[in-house]
């Protein structure tokens, strides 16, 4: 097993474990703990991005998610000062049935992948990227300002609208009822 593959398994396992910590009740009951678990998960996913030779995206993942988004989450959690989510056990709702179905789909797909690997069906390996610049600023930047120019410009409008919307929604109204 090569070092690359081993690193991928370690990072992927850590990311999945962190994701489970976000969602499952014992750890994720407290929103602050869930936020910290999400932070760890996103950092591990950034590591997976590095293994996939997506260097620029990995740096952006750390800057945008692990930096900005998680600071936002942590601030809101601390600002709201929530009590621990009380747990109402044994509530069967359609959503929970759907969640079980989603988990079942995942289990079946994973089992199929494992069986295919065990029976010797050769899985398609990821090609080593040919270019030195693959996943770097030059390649991705060129795609952004040529092929994806219009979506790229729309992104700036989207972010502007999001800033205005966030400020307007979260603003405390002067006087009167909130």
């Amino acid at each position: 097993m090569s070092g690359e593959l081993l690193a991928f398994y370690v990072l992927a396992g850590a990311a999945v474990a962190g994701a489970l910590c976000v969602v499952l009740p014992p750890f994720g009951r407290n929103p602050l703990h869930a936020a910290l678990a999400l932070l760890a998960t996103l950092a591990f996913v950034a590591g997976v991005f590095v293994i996939l030779s997506a260097h620029l995206v990995a740096v952006l993942q750390v800057l945008v998610y692990v930096g900005a988004v998680m600071v936002l989450f942590t601030f809101v959690v601390l600002l709201l000062n929530l009590r621990r989510e009380e747990f109402i056990g044994a509530r069967v709702t359609p959503w929970k049935v759907g969640a079980v179905a989603a988990a079942a789909v995942f289990a079946v797909k994973t089992a199929r992948a494992v069986v295919a690997a065990a029976t010797g069906a050769r899985a398609a390996d990821l090609a080593a990227p040919g270019l030195e610049t693959y996943g770097g600023i030059r390649d991705v930047g060129r795609e952004l300002v040529t092929t994806y120019l219009f979506p790229f410009e729309l992104t700036s409008i989207l972010l502007l609208v999001a800033i205005l919307g966030a400020v307007l929604i979260a603003r405390r109204r002067e006087g009167g009822a909130p």
Binding site: V48, A117, A124, L126
Partner: peptide, 8 residues
């Protein structure tokens, strides 16, 4: 050896 796509 590189990583199988299916694992990703």
């Amino acid at each position: 050896t590189s990583i199988p796509l299916s694992h990703v």
